[in-house]
Amino acid sequence: MIAGLYRDGNSVLHRAQAGAKILAMVALGTGVFLIPDWPVVSLVLVSVIVLYRISGFGWATMTAQIKPMFWLLAIFFAVQLWLNDWQAGLLVITRIAAIVMFASLVTLTTKTSDMLASLERAMRPLKPLGVNPEKVSLAISMVLRFIPVIATVASEIRDAQRARGLDRSILAMIVPLIIRTLKMADDVADAIEARSFD
């Protein structure tokens, strides 16, 4: 099965309820937009950095979360510097960094299974609206089951197309992939029904 992004640990954040952490994330995200004040937001960012340390993560883990958007943040800072002033630039980048880093921290400290459990709890009140938690769990499991199967089918098709000299055409890959996996989906649906699911 696909490994989640969770990193083992035993900190306060690791032990906290998934739902509580998600609520904290929403609160932090809303908060930093409601207070457009760079010193306050910088303080929030520093607190998030401290939380990484408390949770047992080093600088490498921390920077890895923000690295993919480093250039984007640099551009945003430059744009603000050009349009307004450096304070505005600082506000924009500290705000994004604080939200993204806290959100990543929630993912790093919460097991996929705990996240799933709180999702199932959150879905319960939606039952009258036609949301069936069992079917959602089934669908989630099936995606995880399908990913390796589709990846295998994709590489089979790629080999077959390569033999015909079509390996550079993504269309020659994607159409047979969809048709073969749709056929598979029909068989899977039959198998589920045969196993008395309804």
Partner: peptide
Amino acid sequence: DNQIVYPV
């Protein structure tokens, strides 16, 4: 492959 529904 079409009958096994769950990943584990």
